[in-house]
Design a protein around this nucleic acid. Structure first.
Length: 425
RNA sequence: GGGCAGGUUCCAGAGUGGCCAAAUGGGACGGGCUGUAAACCCGUUGCGGAAACGCUUCGGAGGUUCGAAUCCUUCCCUGCCCA
């Protein structure tokens, strides 16, 4: 059992706040610690932001500790008001349950639940049957409304309105921790920094009710250097589910990160040794793209597997390898002219190509542009390309003549969004 | 339950009968410069149309009017104050 998991986590940037740093460090060095992280069942998939707790769990588990992943179907029915401006949309119980199941399956990919060193539970199992009055008497009496109201997490909501149901969230999360403490001797809860108050409430509750000692650790809420929330793009969340967000796009998400974020991201989202990361951080100017490719490959490998990561890498190399007629300058690395066929592809009936296809429609059809109107606008602005050649007129039709030697052709929207078209008979 | 103030396009926020597809700012997107980065500069930002123009939008439903985001009725929702 490594003596330094805590220090490793800290050095990698996983630690925002800890209840008692010395106690946690000692505990993690001396014994097999059971810890937990909760995940909301608000969607059918987790997104890139959730990788922070996931990776922390992976590190701890590798160091010999026991991980409990709690899917929060019970708490999701209530909704956490912490740091939120508005009340969360109420979801149906069946929906929440189904989403919880999906998330559990997703988590299994990283944690390989075996019932002993990685355990999966759903808090709906113990929260839903709770009897109201005895819950109030046993648990509710330990909570001070005065203190809750003073908490920073509720400040926003006191201005905008906070309903009673949400006000109970903290009690439920604290009760989760108490339950896990009792059932599994779980002594540490981790979560995003916005969960600090909720986690501490659990630590307090364990002390008051059981006289037990438990610890809290939070992760920094990552934002990108440009201020955006981690794991969000203009199109929406960076889902971990390949069906919602393709491995190729996932790979590109990391490649396109801000220079300033590369080091931080390598530490958190990859398992590369720190020495290797430090070496990559030394890269400057255009060399830093090499570090980004490593980041993208490693991160994609963890979420989608090595095969998908490799495909994504090759597709990116193909799309940005500067081999097209328009690419004057030679690309940085001409080692791999990647496999172009792994790019997102749509087959179009040959007859349509014979007749000639209006481009604005086709770009929209394959999802490169949201509407024909937008596609036309982009053509006017010189933002759409066929085989790396700028489309100069909205009259332009796509025909068989556009097919390249490989039998397909490439559509580009902007410099980065690519889609391959192949004829179908 | 009573009183007051509100619900506008991705967000914030103007607009109070025609000049409104709707100011301004932010965001986003495209172009330029670069390194698939940042910063900066230019442009775009409801849908359809090559265009003329048409269509759908201002919480929901109904109504007044030649004409409504703007007026009336009613319903839903939010905030504040009082109970």
């Amino acid at each position: 059992m490594s003596a330094n998991v805590y220090d490793e986590l800290k050095e990698r940037g996983f630690v925002a706040q800890v209840s008692d740093e010395e106690a946690v460090r000692k505990m993690l060095a001396a014994e097999r610690v059971t810890f937990y992280v909760g995940f909301d069942s608000t969607a059918t998939s987790l997104h890139a932001g959730s990788l922070v707790p996931i990776m922390a769990m992976v590190h701890l588990r590798r160091a010999g500790h026991r991980a409990i992943a709690v899917v929060g179907s019970g708490t999701t029915m209530v909704g956490d008001p912490s740091g939120k401006t508005e009340m969360r949309q109420m979801l149906e119980e069946a929906t929440i349950r189904a989403q919880g199941q999906a998330i559990l399956i997703q988590l299994a990919r990283y944690l390989h639940f075996d019932g002993t060193s990685a355990i999966a539970v759903d808090n709906a199992d113990w929260l839903l049957p709770l009897p109201y009055i005895s819950f109030l008497r046993d648990i509710g009496r330990h909570f001070s409304v005065n203190r809750m109201l003073a908490a920073e997490a509720y400040k926003l909501r006191l201005e905008k309105g906070l309903s009673f149901i949400e006000f109970n969230y903290q009690l439920l999360q604290a009760y989760d921790f108490l339950t896990l403490f009792r059932e599994y001797h779980c002594t540490m809860q981790m979560g995003g920094d916005d969960q600090w108050g909720n986690i501490l409430a659990g630590v307090d509750l364990i002390r008051r009710v059981e006289g037990g000692a438990a610890e809290a650790l939070t992760f920094p809420l990552l934002t990108t250097a440009s201020g955006a929330k981690m794991g969000k793009t203009a199109q929406g969340a960076v889902w971990l589910d390949g069906a919602l967000f393709s491995p190729y796009d996932f790979y590109q998400y990391w490649v396109n990160c801000d220079d300033r974020d590369v080091g931080r991201f390598l530490r958190i989202f990859t398992l590369l040794p720190l020495e290797e990361i430090r070496r990559l951080e030394e890269l400057k100017d255009s060399g830093i793209n090499e570090a980004k490719r490593v980041l993208a490959f490693e991160a994609t490998k963890i979420t989608h597997g090595e095969l998908e990561a490799e495909k994504a890498r090759q597709a990116a190399a193909a799309a940005f390898g500067k081999v097209g007629p328009a690419g004057g300058a030679t690309g940085a690395k001409s080692d791999v002219i990647g496999d172009i066929t792994v790019l997102p592809t749509t087959a179009v009936p040959r007859s349509r190509l014979e007749a000639g296809i209006a481009l604005a429609g086709l770009f929209t059809e394959v999802g490169l542009t949201p509407s024909r109107k937008e596609a036309k606008r982009m053509i006017e602005q010189g933002g759409l390309y066929v085989n790396d050649e700028r489309i100069d007129s909205i009259e332009r039709l796509l025909t068989l003549k556009d097919l390249g030697p490989d039998g397909g052709l490439l559509l580009k929207a902007g410099k980065k969004k690519v889609h391959r078209i192949v004829p179908a008979d």
